[in-house]
Every structure is written in C-alpha cells, then in structure tokens.
Design a protein around this nucleic acid. Structure first.
Length: 419
RNA sequence: CGGGGUGUAGCGCAGCUUGGUAGCGCGGCUGGUUUGGGACCAGUAGGUCGUAGGUUCGAAUCCUAUCACCCCGACCA
C-alpha cells in the first residue's frame, strides 16, 4: 500500500475529550473518529487492525470445526418474548417499532436468533454437534459509554454457539473452546488470564472470562501466584464478603484490574427449553438441545492491546496486530526522481517477498513522517533518501529503539521475515 | 439517574470575574527560500462564540431553559 491511496489521519495534538491512553492514541493516530457517545467510525488503518484480529479468531475457530455465518443485526421482539428476555433485559436493549408498529430491537447478543435458526434446521442427534460463529456489530445501550471503544454502545463482537445432544459433549466442547481462546489470545500476543465468572444476563451454568491485564481495566480480578483466579462477583460469593479489600485479606489472593475481552458460557438448555429447540435421540426419545456460547470483543481487543503496548511516542503494536509489518519512508521522493524510483523498487521487492508494507509517499519532511509512524506503532521502519539511493542500501529502524542501521536489501528482508 | 466539568476556526486553547461586536498556537491554501527527527518568510481563507429565549442602547461575557460531550458513581460483556 501507498499512503497516497491508503489515507492516514494523524493528529498533532492528543484529543481533549479522551482520558485513557488507548482512547487518546486511537484518535490521535487516526484509527477511529467519534460519531456520538459510544459510537465510532473506523478509518482504514484502524479497520486493518480489526481485520488482523478477526483473521486470527477465524483461523483458530475454523481449526476446531466452527463455521462462520452472519445473522441480522435487527431482531424481531417475538423471539425475545419467547425466551423471556424482552422483559428481563432492561433498557440496555434498544427497542423500536417498524412502520407496521411491530417491535424490534438492535441485537446485543444472538442466542434467540441462532436458537430459532437451529431449531428449524436440526431435528436429530445425528446432526449434532454443531458449531457456528459470526463476527458482527452488536448494540448495547450502555448506561454510560466510556473510554472510546473500550465500553462502546456499538461494537464488533465475535459470538460462537455450540449445539449438542448431551451434557458430556457440551462439557468437552466447552474445554475445546477454552483452549482455542487461549490460543487466540496467545497469537494476539496479549498478557491475559482466565478467571471463573458469573454467567450474568446470558444465563447458563458455568462460565469463564478472559481478561487482558491492565491498570485501566474496569473489572476486579482476584488471582493466585500463577495469575489464575476469579472475578469479583464470584469472589464475593465464595468468601461471603462484599468489600474488595476484606476479600483480598481473607483470601490472600492478588488483586489485578482486567479488561474483559472474552467470555465463554455453558448455556445448557436455557434457550432450547424456552424456545423449544428439540431433537430426537438414538432411543427415539426427545430432548432439548444442549448449548454453549462463546464471545470475544473484537473492537475492545484493539483498545486493550494499546493499553498494554505503548510508550511516549505512541502505539507499539505487537507483531500480530500491527496494521502493517513495515513502513517505508522516502525522503524528498516527491522532488528527487532517483529517490522515488529507488523507493518504488524497494517497495516492489518487499511486496514480492510477501511483506505487508506501507510506503509513505507523501510530500512531507522526514521528521513528520517518522513521528506519524512512531505514533502508529509500526514495528519496522525503512528510510530511503539520497544517501541510500546512491549506496544501494536502506536505513532500518525498529519501533523499539531510537538508533538506525544500514542494511543491504536482502539482509533486511531476512531480518524482517525472521522477527 | 445523582454528582462534577466542558462547549469560542479543522485540532489545542485564551477572552467571560469587571458587557462595547472575537484572538493565539498548530493545521489549510498561494508564492518563495529550505530539506537526514514535526523548517522559515510573506500573503490568504476559515467562526450566526452548542442551541433557544431573556436583561441591555449594546451579550462570547449577565440570567433562564435546553442539547451535546467528558469524568466519578450506580449498572453491565
């Protein structure tokens, strides 16, 4: 990509209305722009990060036999009345009527829709188990949206659902998802932990949350030495104590703040009973389908990753999430034909080596370009000016260090491919 | 919903206490000089001061209402 056809929208100053570092940096680096409270547009560079996350999730879910679908964002009230959640869910569920005065809501989660889908398609244990997921926009009318995309009203979430003819199969699948989630967060290169959790509004029996550990997290976690543990709700029950500090004393556990980025549930028959999703078993008896559901907050991960990876100059993307692997900065390419041609040649060769590269061909001073790409957090930077063009080499700079080194091109490709 | 704060040019802000018809820095555009870590000079464009009402000869400034945004709390993935 070239900046001339892949626009970036960095700001010189940090925005005044952002509080936490990830929110500030996402605005300043031009990943997102606010439309209204809790609603953000994603610009090209931000969307590219989302794609990276989505693809890691897709690969891991496909690997455990989970297939992608897409369900409607707007859902009819009938299904929610059937499950009982039309009355339970509260004002977080944004409701409205269509022109025929029929009730609808914006989907905050999709248990009703998928249960309806499956009950119509599946009638025998022979068709199970079945695993489906979607990556889509969700809407929750939060009491108080805050911290940019961290607690937004409109956000992208991956939600997966599993269907089983018996509890054992659900139990086994739950563990498979737990492992797949662990792989996903490892590949995302985030510092995370898994805790026991309450199943809350979604319902069901067992649940685990995946948290990115960060001081700006909104959730309280109580962890042991190896950073396993539980969230505050569970700790309150387990230690029969409401006060956080007293729980810490009583339990001897470590208190950490976490950003909830994943949540897996064993739903059991909660929705299959209320919505009458039944199958026939081997002995020709009937049972309600056993279900599990498994969420990952895609847009929240972007913010969480930045909370964990930044410095004074801006974002420091982990390799796995960086919108580009390499940025090529040309110095005065707009005025120096040789530099332009040489930069273009290097760009072509890196593209040919399958390196995801952005070529900054703007007519700006070198310093401005470097500041922009440090803010944007690209791990590898190549600088090409008159000197490099004459010497037939490139200057390389890592996002993590201030010093620069000269490289021959083939050595550089080797270095980048290895890291 | 309770408490606190902020709305003035694309961005960051001053001006408001003490009313006299709007300014600074950055950014934009034009021309020139520059060019290896956010250049310099000159010129230029851009604002019904969140909105509505009121007080006043006169309101960004005082009063009332209202809207939006941010922070704390309750709530929640």
């Amino acid at each position: 990509m070239k900046v001339s056809t892949f626009p970036i929208f960095t700001l010189k100053d940090a925005p005044a209305d952002a509080e936490i570092i990830s929110h500030k940096l996402m605005i300043q680096s031009g990943m997102i722009r606010k439309l209204s409270s809790g609603q953000y547009s994603w610009l090209p560079i931000g969307l590219k990060v989302i794609s990276k996350i989505e693809n890691i999730i897709r690969n891991e879910l496909n690997a455990i036999g989970c297939r992608e679908i897409l369900m409607p964002f707007i859902q009819p009230a009938e299904l929610w009345k059937e499950s009982g959640r039309w009355d339970q869910y509260g004002p977080e569920l944004l409701r409205f009527k269509d022109r025929n005065d029929r009730d609808f809501c914006f989907g905050p989660t999709f248990e009703e829709v998928i249960t309806d889908l499956i009950r119509n398609e599946v009638s025998s244990y022979k068709q199970l188990p079945l695993n489906l997921f979607q990556i889509s926009t969700k809407f929750r009318d939060e009491i108080r949206p805050r911290f940019g995309v961290m607690r937004a009203r409109e956000f992208i979430m991956k939600d997966a659902y599993s269907f089983h003819s018996n509890q054992k199969c659900l139990d086994e699948t739950y563990d498979i998802y737990k492992l797949a989630y662990t792989n996903i967060f490892k590949k995302l290169m985030l510092d995370f932990t898994i805790v026991d959790a309450d199943s809350g509004n979604i319902g069901g029996s067992k649940s685990n949350e995946f948290h990115v550990i960060a001081d700006t997290g909104e959730d309280d976690l109580l962890l042991d030495e190896s950073l396993n543990g539980m969230n505050l709700e569970i700790a309150k029950i387990k230690y029969s104590e409401d006060d956080l500090n007293k729980i810490i004393k009583k339990s001897g556990l470590i208190h950490k703040k976490g950003i909830e980025v994943g949540h897996i549930f064993k739903l059991g028959k909660k929705y299959s009973e209320s919505m009458k999703a039944k199958i026939t078993l081997k002995d020709s008896s009937m049972t309600n389908i056993f279900m599990g559901c498994y969420g990952i907050g895609v847009t929240r991960i972007v913010a969480a990753a930045i909370e964990q990876n930044h410095d004074d100059s801006g974002i420091v993307w982990p390799q796995s999430l960086s919108p580009f692997q390499v940025v090529l900065i040309e110095i005065d390419g707009a005025k120096n034909e040789q530099v332009r041609m040489y930069s273009q040649k290097i760009y072509n060769e890196l593209c040919a080596s399958n390196i995801d590269i952005i070529y900054d061909d703007r007519d700006l001073k070198m310093g401005s370009k470097i500041k922009d790409w440090e803010l944007l957090g690209i791990p590898h930077m190549i600088i090409i000016g008159k000197k490099e063009t004459e010497n037939n080499n490139v200057v390389y700079k890592s996002r993590l260090s201030k010093d620069k080194k000269e490289f021959a091109l083939d050595k550089l490709i080797e270095k980048i491919s290895k890291s």
